[in-house]
Nucleic acid binder design. Structure first.
Lengths: 337, 337
DNA sequence: GTGAAAGCGCTAACAT
DNA sequence: ATGTTAGCGCTTTCAC
């Protein structure tokens, strides 16, 4: 792309050996070199506009200072904050993040991860919640560093960072129960997603515990359309009455909004709705959405931290970090009439 | 990260020279080698689980197959679609995108671009709308490939991809004029942004052309808060009456929503509001927002296409691609009462 | 404290 | 059609 200035160029001008320039420019090794020489070399490097070639360095040191981040879809608004969290931890430490979107497709994911490995990423942050556990075990035996985020899976041999899904669902149901609701729907995410399973499972447990009637409706994706379609289908079948919906995430809750509206049902007058994630703009929906806040930025930070920590202490146990969530009460939930 | 299988390993097992393996595995050069040998080598490579080392290849070929993408902030919902558009063009062609967030800070941007260059990116896609034109000229003379997207600047020596800002503002004003509005506010984005300038400029021109009263309010950022703050300040000063707001983007329009509400003004009964971008969820706001659709995904695709095309025909003129926009009429605009 | 030399994994010119 | 060789830009032993 450009006639770059190399270490050898600097060395030539400075009248020293490339090795000396390398040592001088690296803060780690500059104490091996005469202070005066360091100063001189630094000066010349600056004058020439020398910039290190990270690629060449990586080839030699076997570290690319690059982390692969695998997410389902960047346009799902929970991921940008997560990615920025990752970035905020990595950048000051000299790492860059290479982001890929799997679109929830396991085959695509495998292809993308392979391309990340070919690019010699030092580790992987995986935020795709579906299957592929075999693949992960394989990676682990091959010595690939990774951290899971926003997904939970008992068999996975890697550290995991999640929001406290169970506590979130519990808080949601308790809030609705306090408002007098007894007949519940859970609009559950796709069943191949680990978060879906936990949320649905907790929903069932909590309904039982509190003596409430809970019914689970499955959706095919964590999207507005999937939520609307599933809800439409349910409402078209003249279901037994219900007054509360606990959605698997905010997108599904929004789909429920749409469906309720087209069926002449008002939220929250007829039906209370709770989302999950507190993604951007939930406060601007009609009505402003009661939802469970999940600290996605912090999840990203934590995932990055756990990954880099693996580089130091080789054999760390696969820790599991659960970040606290909190119920954000807005206007989509109301007293049962 | 792992005991990788190298080209030399494959060569040794196959009983041939590394060069031959390289040629056999590269579709471009495999015809230089005996079909039978290619088959054998391919087979062995597969068995050994060989994966090419993109970093080493890049060092040798002086192409990293990596593109740097500089955006202000991934959590601004217009950028994920743009990034995915870029990705959709790059990935099938073997390129990866390295995304960095400048947060609208010129100094940060410079640091980030430098780090991208150190990583030997083959080119840059720059979506930050503010200054730095000197820097860009400098890059250009140094032979750095780049494309500007979502920013317009007469002096910049690079191809540019934008939405048709002027047409968007015109359509917005014509729509409002047809509804009988005569007193307008333009909530303009920060003045160091090129899109802000064009939108504000067109606003002035169009008001004049149609004989309308237009007033510009400047904001400090393209954010909800900045929109709300600017609007609050304006409304607190008991301004001369107005019935239409043309916002610089959807975030500012949303800020205006908030401000109007706290000042007891109803949208669209008292004031019509138009946004810009048609970002995700504008249809779910209260009221659903009339806005100008900008094809961000396509802008990303086009930017990537223009960048790669530079790699082929060296001296292409700095083309300027303007993508069509369209007014999306929803419920935040109504007849003047 | 600094130089010399090897080599990370790959490709490409030059041989044969 | 394939082997040989050099070298991309850097770090890091090993000398001195």
């Amino acid at each position: 792309m450009r006639n770059r200035v190399t270490l050898a160029d600097v060395a030539k001008i400075a009248g020293v050996n490339p090795g000396t320039v390398s040592r001088s420019l690296n803060p780690q090794t500059e104490n091996q070199v005469n202070k005066e020489t360091v100063r001189k070399i630094r000066k010349i490097a600056k004058e020439l506009g020398y910039t290190p070639n990270t690629v060449a360095r990586g080839l030699r040191t076997r570290k690319s200072l690059t982390i692969g981040v695998v997410i389902p879809d960047l346009t799902n608004p929970i991921f940008p904050p997560l990615v920025r969290g990752v970035d905020s931890y990595l950048l000051p430490r000299g790492y860059s993040a290479l982001i890929v979107n799997s679109d929830g497709n396991v085959d695509t994911e495998l292809v993308l991860i392979n391309s990340l490995m070919e690019r010699q990423v030092d580790g992987l942050i995986i935020a795709t919640g579906h299957g592929g556990d075999e693949m992960l075990k394989d990676f682990h035996t091959r010595g690939v560093y990774a951290v899971m985020v926003n997904r939970e899976s008992p068999g996975v041999p890697y550290p995991t960072v999640t929001g406290d899904d169970g506590a979130g669902i519990s808080a949601a149901i308790e809030h609705l129960a306090a408002l007098g609701h007894t007949e519940y729907i859970h609009l559950a995410g796709p069943s191949d997603s680990s978060t879906s399973k936990i949320r649905a499972h907790t929903f069932t447990i909590e309904c039982k515990r509190l003596g409430l009637n809970g019914k689970i409706i499955k959706t095919t994706a964590y999207s507005i359309e999937a939520g609307q379609t599933a809800m439409d289908k349910f409402l078209d079948h003249k279901p037994s009455p219900f007054t509360a919906i606990v959605a698997g995430n905010d997108l599904l809750a929004l789909g429920a909004y749409h469906s309720l509206r087209t069926h002449g049902l008002n939220c929250p007058d007829d039906v209370s709705v709770i989302g999950f994630n507190n993604m951007p703009f939930t406060n601007d929906f009609q009505p402003p959405m009661t939802t469970v806040n999940v600290p996605h930025f912090d999840m990203g930070v934590e995932a990055a931290r756990l990954l880099l920590s693996q580089f130091e202490d080789e054999e760390s146990a696969p820790v599991k970090v659960t970040l606290p969530v909190s119920l954000i009460i807005r206007e989509s939930t109301a007293l049962k009439k």
